[in-house]
């Protein structure tokens, strides 16, 4: 999906935010782009192509996930089966939300980005492997590039470190902070 600045209103339109749980949002992923006004699927939209069904990596344009803070966006992507998104940049809130849900945002240089799109154009079945341990992405003929990931996010994703657990372990410090600041 090459277009840039894909916003969260496209990923999940607001009318589907009335849920009180996280399930089933994949059904509405990119709904307004996937479904034509007459209710039939838009065969030109990339997610509707038969060859991408079952794909786990979404190759996206820059500034992916801009707009609202809705965590429904990564929930919907995950529910559809996406495990990682590759782009040149991500909106901050989207990136945070994605990591908390085990959806990997992979940031690559424009050059790599271009090569990946070229490869997928030539062969829609081309495979890309993302290795979070070594922080590398490999594709084509042994072509491997590194990608940045902040160490804490990497650990959370790899070891399933629960960020809430980390915060809860700070209890003493939080209480000390409150004792110092409350009433001021």
């Amino acid at each position: 999906m090459a277009m840039r600045d894909v916003d969260t209103d496209q990923i999940v339109p607001a009318r589907f935010l009335k849920v009180i749980d996280k399930e089933g949002l994949g059904e509405h992923l990119f709904e307004d782009w996937r479904i034509l006004p007459d209710g039939s699927p838009n065969s030109e939209f990339v997610l509707n192509r038969p060859e991408v069904q079952g794909a786990q990596i979404l190759l996206a344009g820059s500034n992916f996930g801009c707009g609202s803070s809705r965590e429904h966006a990564p929930w919907a992507l995950m529910d559809w089966g996406v495990r990682a998104v590759i782009s040149t940049s991500f909106a901050d809130i989207f990136r945070n939300n994605a990591i908390k849900n085990g959806l990997l945002p992979v940031t690559v240089e424009a050059e790599t980005h271009g090569e990946l799109f070229g490869m997928v154009d030539r062969d829609p079945h081309a495979e890309v492997t993302i290795d979070l341990v070594s922080q590398t992405l490999s594709f084509g003929n042994e072509h491997a590039v590194g990608f940045p990931m902040d160490p804490f996010a990497r650990l959370s994703l790899l070891e399933g470190v629960d960020q809430l657990g980390y915060l809860l372990s700070m209890e003493e410090k939080i209480s000390a902070y409150e004792a110092n600041h409350d009433g001021s």
């Binding site: 809705r70 965590e71 939300n97 908390k100 849900n101 915060l167």
Partner: peptide, 11 residues
């Protein structure tokens, strides 16, 4: 995001 809302509620 909503996960963070939960973190702030709890801690």
């Amino acid at each position: 995001g909503t996960s963070e809302v939960k973190h702030v509620l709890a801690t």
